[in-house]
Simulated assay, not measured.
Amino acid sequence: MAHRTLIAALASALIGAGAGGAAADTAANPLEDGPTWEELRGDVVGDAEIAPGDALFAVDAPYRAHDAATVPLTITQTDPGATITGATVIVDENPAPVAGTFTFGPAMAPLDFELRVRVNQYSNVRVIAETEDGLFMDGRFVKASGGCSAPASRDPEVALAAMGQMKLKLFGETAALSTPRREAQVMIRHPNYSGLQRDQITQLFIPAHFIDTLEVRQGEELLFSMTGGISISENPVFRFSYADNGATSLSVRATDTEGNVFEHDLPKDAAS
């Protein structure tokens, strides 16, 4: 009996340790101190003061990313009394750290916004939010590597042939005050080449070619815009909630670094 009890105790301890390890992977992974941000700070915000953002918004990103080339990053506003008008997403250790600079229209408040970024090595992924009261920062430390040089998921000819295709998904509607809110996802086909990937046949580097501007509107009203860089993932996806003004479609306009312009009117009644 004592032997069985000891075995049971050891098994319980091992299970607990395993559960603790799993919990550690999903527990909060706050920003870590390091010299990189101090080197970047002046280039990103100059001398502007930045306050802690944990009371204003939360950033969610995995502690260990399953795919370094498509790391999900979610920004969720926790103080509904404030207005977040813009945000800059930074991956400290990436070759081009500023993943994107975003502007948000009034219909996006309170902010609930998700995108996918590349992470090239273990790095802080931070968000600097702009409000009428100044700048606020929060973020997560993400363990991932090789995201900027990971091979593209599609053959280049196939990727270029589909480039610029877009799709809208809607996820229902909820009542928020007097205005219905809706959750949407906009998907854009584009290889978003980083300039660090190699052609799998020639082994030559594929030149950088990525979406550099994006606007999403409902009617004439801006929902959000982006100035992007190489740290935005291949085939960018943006999921967000917004106050629906009754427009029958969302219009999306994107440009890339090769001068291509992609414009689509995505009807809500055709969204899957």
Rank of each mutant, 00 (worst) to 15 (best):
A28Y: 10
G195K: 02
G146Q: 10
I90Q: 03
T78Q: 14
R154E: 15
T213H: 15
V98S: 09
P236L: 09
V186A: 10
A159M: 12
F136H: 00
I206E: 00
G42L: 04
T76M: 08
T257I: 12
V59D: 13
L170R: 06
I75M: 14
A96F: 09
A271M: 09
A254E: 02
V252Y: 01
A8I: 12
N120M: 06
E130W: 02
K167P: 01
T103P: 01
I211V: 06
E258K: 14
V89I: 15
N235Q: 09
A270V: 01
D112F: 03
E32D: 07
A150L: 03
D33P: 03
Q218N: 01
H209R: 14
I7C: 08
K169A: 14
G172H: 07
Y63K: 15
A68D: 07
N124M: 06
S272W: 12
V237M: 07
V186D: 07
E39C: 07
A175N: 10
A176S: 11
S153N: 11
G105M: 09
R126I: 10
A13G: 04
K143G: 05
M187N: 12
M166P: 03
G53I: 04
M166D: 06
T257L: 11
F136W: 03
S231M: 06
P62A: 14
E114S: 14
D43A: 14
P30G: 13
A24D: 10
D133G: 03
A99Y: 02
R41I: 07
V59I: 15
L266C: 01
A82Y: 02
I90R: 00
Q203P: 02
D199K: 13
A159F: 10
S249G: 07
F102V: 00
Q165K: 12
Q203W: 12
Y122H: 13
T248V: 05
V216D: 02
F57V: 06
A55N: 10
A270H: 03
E258N: 13
